[in-house]
Write a protein that binds this DNA or RNA. Structure first.
Lengths: 214, 214
DNA sequence: CCAATAAGTAACCAACCAGTTATTTACATG
DNA sequence: CATGTAAATAACTGGTTGGTTACTTATTGG
């Protein structure tokens, strides 16, 4: 039924807008302060919504956290899915995967913050998520395919475990973004400038491609 | 004055023991729940001490957090300082640095948790730490020396940025430990078994040495 | 044994905070 | 314009939590 009742449409539209504002505000608040540090009142204020609506739409603070987390996963999954590297030679394809990951991570520190805090909570919320799909990561499949192709063509070394490489590939970007503040106390601030990010991107590509040489 | 008043000694001894119990309890509580999620009452209970003593000895929850953080840094720094790799050939030395880092990280997930939470707080506490020494990391100096030696001997590729390599080396261990719970939802649990850690260690060494080949 | 001081305790408090209740407002339709 | 319903609001509540106050216990030199 694409043509639902106009009344429902209109009301849904307003309600949906509120839902979306709450979700966006929650993302910002949770990413900034973590689950325990975030304040429901503050989320309501940021969303310019009444606190009651948060409970009406999302049930509880923890349920809201899970919704935010699932949405963040979905957003990244969508971007990963849009990656098309199968036409590229293995080394170019791999370079693109590494670059994509670093750029996405740097552009979405909220995702990094959410992930860290969810791990602090032993992934308790994700584990009870019904959207198991949220955990599926297209990047892993793509990586596996590129790796297999590169091995077959002799472009990559043999015997590389896709899981290990995936964790390494994601980790070298994630750690840089997640710990930029403490790293800044060691190396001086300026790790998040365009120039510094470009240098990090080049290094990450170098590391992965350098390692994969036969 | 090695022989201070016995009265002071005895009392200091009892006081120091309480201080230490509080610090240990705080480390456990903070690592488990983060700064915002940790409860001062719970720390007092874990330490089998009165809450008042926490404030007498450490001033406030945030000051206690900083003390815990500094102690964790100091502990790691001490272990890094005990590393002696200058007598080893560059590749062996580098392998030892990578192995050390992964093992230390895996053995001290509390340090990882503290670091993540401190970064969530934009390193606000470390930045106002008077023990600037806490930020100094011997591993970086050692890495720099090994890298220079390996380059000079032709064992490593040229032009590697020590900072980038340091971040990569630490990151590939840190991310694995910090995100083991969400990674487990993807790859199935069992990432922290002895076997899995040995596999990760081997991979990390392979990546760094593979990358550094000339 | 007694004074002096350090260490430790129990009870308390005010601010905070997740979650609720009672009520009002907005809006499409008959 | 009256009416039913979805959306939104203000005010409140009970438990929690960082921090404090007033008081007790332990230790030892004189």
């Amino acid at each position: 039924m694409p043509d639902t009742h106009p009344i429902a449409r209109k009301l849904d539209g307003r309600a949906d807008a509120t839902r979306r504002r709450i979700l966006e505000a929650a993302l910002a608040e949770f990413a900034e302060k973590g689950l325990a540090g975030a304040r429901v009142d503050e989320i309501a204020a940021r969303a310019d919504a009444n606190k009651r609506m948060i409970y009406a739409y999302y049930g509880s603070k923890e349920d809201l956290w899970l919704s935010v987390l699932e949405q963040a996963y979905t957003a990244k999954r969508d971007r990963e899915h849009a990656l098309d590297v199968q036409a590229l030679p293995p080394r170019d394809a791999m370079a693109k995967l590494v670059s994509f990951n670093l750029r996405y991570t740097a552009a979405h520190p909220e995702f990094v913050a959410l992930l860290n805090d969810e791990n602090l909570n032993r992934a308790a919320h994700l584990k009870r998520s019904e959207e198991v799909q949220a955990l599926y990561t297209p990047l892993l499949d793509t990586l596996r395919a590129v790796l297999a192709r590169g091995e077959a063509e002799g472009a990559f070394r043999r015997g590389v475990d896709p899981m290990q490489l995936y964790i390494t590939l994601v980790g070298i970007g994630h750690f840089y973004v997640a710990n930029s503040h403490t790293l800044s106390t060691i190396f001086g601030s300026g790790l998040t400038t365009k120039k510094a990010l470009a240098a990090r991107e080049a290094h990450c590509v170098d590391v992965v491609l350098g390692y994969l040489r036969p």
